[in-house]
Amino acid sequence: RRRVRAILPYTKVPDTDEISFLKGDMFIVHNELEDGWMWVTNLRTDEQGLIVEDLVEEVG
């Protein structure tokens, strides 16, 4: 499975499927959606939700 790491922190918009995260958080990518969004699991918090790919980098 594809893994990505947050390069910046992010605070979710209330009442959306987004998740908040810290710089350095690792995610497993489940689905890549339109307009650069990804459905992921945050490995630190075990939370699932949407993040935008501009805020993460690939992990080898």
Rank of each mutant, 00 (worst) to 15 (best):
M26H: 12
P9R: 06
Q48H: 10
L33M: 13
E57G: 05
D54M: 13
S20I: 01
V40M: 00
E34Y: 12
E32Q: 13
D15H: 12
G49W: 01
W39A: 04
R1I: 15
E58P: 10
L8K: 10
E58F: 06
E57C: 11
Y10C: 05
H30T: 06
N31Q: 11
W37L: 10
V29G: 00
R3E: 10
L33I: 08
L50N: 04
K12Q: 08
R1K: 15
M38F: 10
N31Y: 13
Y10I: 03
I28F: 08
A6S: 07
V40E: 00
V4D: 00
N31G: 09
E32F: 08
E57T: 09
M38C: 05
M38T: 03
F21A: 03
I28R: 05
L55V: 07
L50A: 11
E57I: 09
V13T: 14
R3G: 05
S20G: 06
Y10A: 04
R44I: 04
K23L: 10
I19M: 06
R2I: 07
L8C: 15
E57H: 06
V13Q: 13
L22K: 12
E32M: 14
L43I: 14
E32S: 12
I28N: 08
M26A: 06
T45G: 03
L43D: 05
K23W: 06
G49A: 00
F21Y: 08
M26P: 04
D54G: 12
G36A: 05
R1D: 15
D15I: 04
W39E: 05
A6W: 00
M38S: 04
T16W: 03
G24T: 03
L8Q: 13
E57W: 05
W37M: 10
A6R: 00
E53R: 15
W37V: 07
I7W: 06
H30N: 07
L55H: 09
G24C: 10
V40K: 00
M38W: 06
D35V: 06
E53H: 13
H30M: 13
V13E: 13
V13A: 12
W39K: 05
V59L: 12
W39T: 04
V59N: 06
K23F: 09
E57A: 08
I19F: 02
R3W: 13
R1C: 15
I7R: 11
I19C: 03
D25M: 01
V59S: 07
D15Q: 11
V4K: 04
R5C: 10
A6Y: 01
E18S: 04
P14C: 13
T11W: 09
D35W: 10
Q48K: 13
D17A: 14
W39R: 06
K12P: 10
S20R: 02
F27A: 01
V56I: 11
K12Y: 03
V56L: 05
L43P: 03
R5F: 05
I19K: 00
L22N: 12
V52T: 10
T11R: 07
L43Y: 06
L55P: 01
I28W: 10
S20V: 02
K12C: 13
L43W: 04
D25V: 01
R1N: 15
D17F: 11
V59A: 13
E57R: 08
A6I: 02
H30C: 15
R3Q: 10
L8P: 02
I7C: 09
H30I: 11
V52C: 15
P9I: 05
F27L: 05
D35I: 06
Q48L: 07
V40S: 03
D46A: 15
P9W: 06
E47R: 06
D54K: 10
V29H: 02
V52K: 15
I28S: 08
F27P: 00
L50M: 12
W39L: 10
D35M: 11
Q48P: 05
G49V: 01
I28Y: 08
I7G: 03
W37T: 09
G60M: 14
V13F: 11
D25A: 02
T45N: 11
Y10L: 04
R3K: 11
R2V: 08
G49S: 00
E34M: 14
D54A: 15
L8V: 14
M26Y: 13
V13G: 10
V40L: 01
E57M: 09
L8W: 11
L43C: 15
L50P: 04
D15L: 09
F21V: 04
V52A: 14
Q48G: 05
I28H: 07
E47N: 05
E32Y: 09
E57Y: 07
N31H: 08
R1S: 15
D17G: 10
S20H: 03
T41C: 13
V4E: 01
R3L: 14
T16M: 03
E34C: 15
V4C: 09
V29N: 01
V29F: 03
V13L: 11
L22G: 06
K23Y: 08
V56P: 01
G24Q: 03
L22T: 08
L43F: 05
E57N: 06
D35E: 10
G49Q: 00
E34R: 14
G24R: 03
G36I: 03
D35A: 11
V4P: 02
P9L: 05
S20P: 03
E47H: 06
R44N: 07
P9Q: 10
M26N: 10
D25R: 00
F27S: 00
N42C: 13
A6P: 00
E18M: 08
E32N: 14
P9T: 12
V56D: 01
M38V: 06
V13I: 11
I7Y: 06
T16C: 05
W37A: 07
L55Q: 11
G60D: 11
P9K: 07
E18Y: 04
V40Q: 00
V56F: 04
I28V: 12
I51A: 05
L33P: 10
L8G: 13
V52F: 14
W37D: 03
L22W: 08
I51H: 00
M26D: 08
R2D: 05
E47G: 04
N31A: 09
I19A: 02
T16D: 02
D17S: 14
W39C: 13
I51M: 05
N42Y: 01
R5A: 07
E34S: 15
L43A: 06
I28G: 03
A6L: 01
T16L: 03
V59P: 06
E53C: 15
G36E: 03
V52Q: 11
S20D: 08
T11Y: 08
D17I: 08
E34I: 14
F27Y: 00
I19T: 02
E32R: 13
L43N: 05
A6H: 00
